[in-house]
Amino acid sequence: MIPQLLNKKIMLVVPPISSVTRPSLGVSNLKSAAQSAGFDVNIFYACFDYAEWIGVDLNQKLAEGTRSDLLIGEWIFCDNIRTRPITEKSLNYENDVLVSHIDEAFRDTIRALKDGSEKYVDHCADIILVQDPSIVGISSTFHQHCAALSIAKKVKERRSDIIILLGGANCEEEMGRATADLFPWVDYVFSGESEVTFPYFLDLVASATEHGTPDSERNLTDSKLTQKFWDYTMAPPLAQMDDLPVPAFDEYFAHLSKATFKHRVQPALTFESSRGCWWGQKHHCTFCGLNGHTMSFRAKSADRVLSEIKYLSDTWDIHDFAASDNIIAMHHIQQVFDKIPDNSKDRFFYETKANVSEDQLRRLCRAGVTWRDRRIVS
């Protein structure tokens, strides 16, 4: 039977390898959306525990100071989810990648991390299971996939009744479909923008629980989703950006306040003012990682952007903002940044295209769009 959701916890997990210098925007949005629907949701920043486990400097080096195409984060955790014997190709990775691109001292370090990865995954499962959640949702972006799958597998082995969800950028379209097909300990995979589908899913599970629907049927469907929840669902892009919740960063700052390295972290607030890419809709760049499903450009209203910046800054007393936007909304230069006062403490990181005019650059600079990462201090 599907476990009772009412009066039980839903846990969202941010796995390693991830920077500890900013909260996860996607998971924070999902928490806010689910809480608005009446569910009890908590976020476990497992990446903080990993930074304590291996040292914050090494964690930051792996998260943001090492070439992502080397897939070191995936290699560290891959043995925990291996379903087939080790092949010659797997063995060659160490010679072809590690030896060729990494110095010997660092190579020895990550070998040690690989050897200790199962112990860390057990540690994560202990923390999750003591909370007695009914649902565990794990986010996966960049080189977090093997860690996410490792934690999911360990939790499922120890508590088969817990519903395991996976989502995030690594679950987009074909990647999500493959994850659902290849890893049987993952019950449901969410692809796309899930701020709407996640609360609907929780409603459906709660309804199925109330009516005693057997879990084995997995017959979770709803007209608002336009499809059956089987083991994989593709969410349509959110049409109205102002419908997004304000992200909940409570657990991030709670974890940071308890960290042994808290005095060294200069945190930033993640936020978004748009999704998609207005340029890519016309001319898709060859190197772009966006696909057609998430390409459509949508922006929050100027009033929403300004009010959200003020709310987050006032709430957390942080003035560094890291925008997740793929490209700045050009109309926000006039409607948002021209309205930011000259004496504002806020500083912003944005990505934009190289065709911004000199006048626009001056206006952005005046408004504080000048900030760069400098978040782990000595």
Results as ranks from 00 to 15, higher is better:
residue 121 V to A: 11
residue 133 P to E: 11
residue 141 T to F: 02
residue 144 Q to S: 07
residue 115 D to Y: 01
residue 76 I to Q: 09
residue 137 G to Y: 06
residue 120 Y to D: 02
residue 84 R to S: 15
residue 137 G to R: 05
residue 134 S to D: 13
residue 75 W to N: 06
residue 95 N to H: 09
residue 89 K to N: 14
residue 177 R to S: 05
residue 55 G to N: 12
residue 122 D to L: 15
residue 148 A to W: 03
residue 171 C to D: 04
residue 134 S to W: 06
residue 111 R to V: 04
residue 76 I to R: 03
residue 115 D to L: 12
residue 174 E to F: 04
residue 102 I to M: 14
residue 112 A to R: 13
residue 86 I to L: 15
residue 167 G to C: 08
residue 156 K to W: 04
residue 112 A to L: 08
residue 71 L to W: 08
residue 112 A to W: 02
residue 173 E to I: 12
residue 108 D to M: 08
residue 145 H to Q: 13
residue 173 E to M: 14
residue 179 T to S: 14
residue 86 I to W: 06
residue 164 I to C: 00
residue 66 T to C: 13
residue 170 N to T: 01
residue 142 F to I: 07
residue 118 E to F: 09
residue 163 I to F: 07
residue 178 A to C: 05
residue 172 E to G: 11
residue 119 K to V: 07
residue 59 N to I: 01
residue 58 L to V: 08
residue 166 L to E: 02
residue 170 N to L: 03
residue 121 V to G: 10
residue 131 Q to S: 14
residue 177 R to M: 10
residue 90 S to G: 10
residue 141 T to K: 07
residue 90 S to Q: 13
residue 180 A to P: 00
residue 120 Y to F: 15
residue 139 S to L: 00
residue 116 G to V: 00
residue 91 L to P: 06
residue 123 H to G: 08
residue 105 A to C: 04
residue 86 I to H: 09
residue 162 I to Y: 06
residue 109 T to S: 14
residue 134 S to I: 06
residue 125 A to V: 07
residue 146 C to A: 14
residue 168 G to Q: 02
residue 178 A to L: 12
residue 58 L to K: 09
residue 125 A to Q: 05
residue 179 T to A: 15
residue 181 D to P: 03
residue 172 E to I: 02
residue 93 Y to T: 05
residue 136 V to I: 10
residue 100 S to A: 14
residue 180 A to V: 09
residue 71 L to G: 06
residue 142 F to N: 15
residue 145 H to N: 10
residue 142 F to R: 11
residue 58 L to S: 11
residue 68 S to M: 13
residue 67 R to S: 15
residue 77 F to R: 05
residue 148 A to H: 00
residue 64 E to H: 00
residue 157 E to A: 10
residue 170 N to D: 14
residue 111 R to E: 11
residue 84 R to Y: 03
residue 185 W to M: 05
residue 78 C to Q: 13
residue 168 G to V: 00
residue 86 I to M: 15
residue 92 N to R: 13
residue 70 L to C: 09
residue 177 R to E: 15
residue 185 W to N: 09
residue 141 T to I: 11
residue 71 L to T: 00
residue 172 E to Q: 14
residue 102 I to E: 10
residue 181 D to F: 02
residue 131 Q to F: 03
residue 118 E to S: 12
residue 93 Y to A: 05
residue 75 W to E: 11
residue 111 R to H: 06
residue 150 S to R: 04
residue 80 N to Q: 11
residue 184 P to H: 10
residue 128 I to C: 04
residue 149 L to G: 04
residue 76 I to F: 06
residue 170 N to I: 00
residue 108 D to C: 01
residue 62 L to P: 07
residue 73 G to F: 08
residue 82 R to W: 04
residue 164 I to T: 02
residue 160 S to D: 15
residue 145 H to P: 01
residue 131 Q to N: 14
residue 115 D to T: 03
residue 129 L to H: 02
residue 74 E to M: 01
residue 129 L to V: 02
residue 164 I to S: 01
residue 155 V to L: 09
residue 167 G to E: 05
residue 129 L to A: 10
residue 180 A to D: 09
residue 124 C to R: 08
residue 123 H to R: 14
residue 75 W to Y: 15
residue 113 L to M: 15
residue 114 K to D: 06
residue 131 Q to A: 12
residue 76 I to H: 07
residue 184 P to C: 07
residue 166 L to K: 03
residue 109 T to C: 12
residue 133 P to F: 02
residue 74 E to L: 04
residue 164 I to N: 07
residue 111 R to G: 08
residue 127 I to C: 08
residue 78 C to T: 00
residue 105 A to R: 12
residue 96 D to P: 05
residue 61 K to F: 07
residue 85 P to R: 10
residue 121 V to I: 15
